[in-house]
Design a binder for these strands. Structure first.
Length: 299
DNA sequence: AGCACA
């Protein structure tokens, strides 16, 4: 029960497993770190996509995108002016479905240390490209293990090569109810899927999105840590507009929960906002939230 | 991946 155990020399006096905290709780751990570590990015992510995703967040300073030579995923380091700003951005963007075609979600944590700020003022982001060959159509330069820098004018809107443009909505700091944050299980496809050549898998007319469950005002919450309590989850859910009641139950070890909301818009906004949230009790990844298959009974 | 309560 005691949180005090031996710590490596020089380490901050914290419980190493209690890295993240729900928004209301300040985490005294990793104190002072201003940089977020962002994983789960596709290999063809663009620097401006990272910039567009985070630069709208309050307190944004600069970001660094690194294409790792191995693995299909790039990582990013996003730095804020304050620790609280970094935590706020992490909590609201964690679990964001970056590419609706794949459904992969972003995994955001606090970085081990604050990134060094590029010299010079203004908003500047860096790119480190360690890939041997780049995807076709994007071969501007071929430099392995090199580092490029771009100056960024802080105003003026679209200034990059006009392609893609996955701007993250999420409002400025208001609740977004009618934002097209991600594609729910809907038949209307806004973005064209990247369909590989040759044999395509079973295409029975219904694309598999993040879930095949139709919208429901009750949410199904999984991937809870074994130590997750109802109070802990309720504290996070209580911040979401329209939240009514939470019910937790354990089946074969891992707990799951059902959260009922006033309407589908509220549940959708809460799901988008809390998707991937890492609680203090989380074991590995953050919350997995879907629409429940049936609405919670009125009690 | 894991969906209950009546």
């Amino acid at each position: 029960m005691s949180l005090s155990h031996r710590l490596p020399p020089g380490a901050p006096v914290v419980d190493p497993y209690y890295v993240y905290a729900p928004p209301p709780r300040p985490d005294p751990h990793r104190h002072g770190v201003l940089t977020l570590f962002v994983a789960g990015l596709p290999d063809d992510v663009k620097p401006r996509e990272i910039h567009n995703l985070f630069s709208h967040r309050p307190g944004f300073d600069h970001c660094l995108l690194e294409y790792t030579g191995r693995g299909n995923q790039a990582v990013a380091f996003v730095t804020f002016f304050t620790h609280e700003s970094a935590l706020s951005a992490m909590n609201s963007l964690n679990g964001t479905i970056f590419d609706p075609g794949t459904g992969d979600r972003l995994h955001i944590e606090l970085a081990k240390s604050t990134s060094r700020r590029p010299r010079g003022g203004g908003e500047v982001y860096r790119v480190i490209d360690k890939r041997a060959n780049k995807p076709e159509g994007n071969a501007d330069h071929e430099n392995d293990g090199d580092e490029e820098q771009w100056g960024e004018d802080e105003d003026g809107g679209n200034n990059d090569s006009g392609d893609g443009g996955s701007d993250e909505p999420s409002g400025t700091e208001n609740e977004n109810s009618s934002d097209r944050n991600e594609l729910p299980a809907d038949q209307s496809d806004q973005l064209p899927h990247k369909q590989q050549n040759g044999q395509s898998p079973s295409n029975d007319g219904r694309d598999k999105s993040s879930s095949d469950i139709p919208p429901c005002s009750t949410l199904f919450i999984a991937n809870l840590g074994h130590a997750c309590t109802e109070d802990e989850l309720k504290e996070v859910l209580s911040r979401e507009p329209g939240f009514h009641v939470l019910k937790m139950r354990r089946r074969s070890g891992m707990p799951v929960a059902f959260a009922d909301f006033m309407d589908i818009e509220s549940s959708t906004a809460a799901m988008n906002n809390l998707q991937g949230t890492i609680l203090a009790s989380s074991d590995n990844d953050g919350l997995h939230i879907e629409y429940a298959r049936s609405k919670m009974r009125k009690s």
